[in-house]
Design a protein around this nucleic acid. Structure first.
Length: 279
DNA sequence: CTCCAGGTTCCGG
DNA sequence: CCGGAACATGGA
């Protein structure tokens, strides 16, 4: 158990790992076990001090985005009570800097699925098709590459409970493995163009593209609108019986939440999902 | 059993 | 641009 300290960053570790951004971190003793790209990683927080297994320091601080100016980000949020309530609830949560394909692929598999089930799919794909890793006798797996997934059959993926998403994940993996779509090149594009490029992939619409941009391409203004966000915006920012179309929501979110809109979105999402009362 | 979940795509107004 | 419907699966 050779751990190294990363100091005492402002970081709500458990909140960050369990907020529906990444889906593969598992409790292990007092910490969390998972993979960052091709490396096995163990994370633990004790009295505010962050520890990581030796050798994974830079990978971990990059993945956890410890360089994001969290205080500045929080200060940039609108001062309305809805956002401030979510901010207070999610204090210390960071937007992870995930590998591009991993972020894109997990959200291709996310459509019309609960977070728990997305996690189950992620684990199955890793176990069956990822590369095995080991840390202190504990095993975990990398997220399977586009090449690995692209070589499978749709039936192989359907057997992981992917349902109709299997064809989309397979075709997207093949387009990337073949070089037809280049995620590194997309990473160089401005937000709007990057979004359009991602949306050329099967199973990638506006919402999934925005998730990929926010979680995998460092686009902190990207604002995914899922059923929870749609509900929060509609109920808390508009009057009952007012006509609110998808275009209304898009325009409102784009103008209201500033340069770190993606952070605000993630806080609103997590807060709503955990505290929403029906009726 | 019914309802719903971090949607996308296609199709007719 | 908008609303509807089809698409799989499992948890609540």
């Amino acid at each position: 158990m050779n751990l190294v300290s990363l100091g005492t960053p402002l970081l709500a570790l458990e909140l960050t790992l369990n907020s529906g951004q990444a889906f593969h971190w598992k409790r292990e003793g007092h910490g969390w076990l998972g993979a960052i790209g091709e490396a096995a990683v163990y994370l633990e927080q004790r009295n505010g001090e962050l520890f990581v297994n030796a050798g994974a320091e830079s990978a971990a601080s990059n993945y956890l985005a410890l360089d994001h100016p969290l205080e500045e980000i929080a200060a940039s949020f609108p001062k309305d009570p809805v956002t401030q309530e979510a901010l207070s609830f999610c204090h210390g949560m960071r937007i992870l800097r995930q590998p591009r394909w991993e972020a894109l692929a997990t959200f291709i598999t996310s459509s019309m699925k609960q977070v728990a089930h997305i996690a189950q799919i992620s684990h199955t794909l890793r176990q069956r098709f990822g590369r095995p890793l080991d840390w202190e006798g504990r095993s975990m797996h990398t997220y399977p590459s586009p090449e690995a997934l692209g070589a499978l059959s749709e039936a192989d993926l359907r057997a992981c409970a992917l349902g109709y998403r299997a064809a989309n994940l397979l075709a997207s993996a093949q387009r990337i493995a073949s070089g037809d779509t280049d995620l590194d090149r997309i990473a160089e594009l401005p937000d709007a163009e990057a979004q359009m490029a991602l949306r050329n992939l099967p199973g990638v619409g506006e919402k999934v593209a925005n998730c990929a941009l926010l979680f995998g391409f460092e686009r902190l203004k990207a604002f995914p609108v899922d059923v929870w966000i749609e509900r929060v915006i509609r109920v808390r920012y508009f009057r009952k019986r007012q006509k609110v179309t998808p275009a209304t929501i898009r325009a409102f979110c784009s103008k209201s939440f500033g340069p770190y809109g993606g952070y605000a979105q993630q806080y609103l999402f997590h807060h709503a999902r955990l505290t929403w009362k029906k009726g």
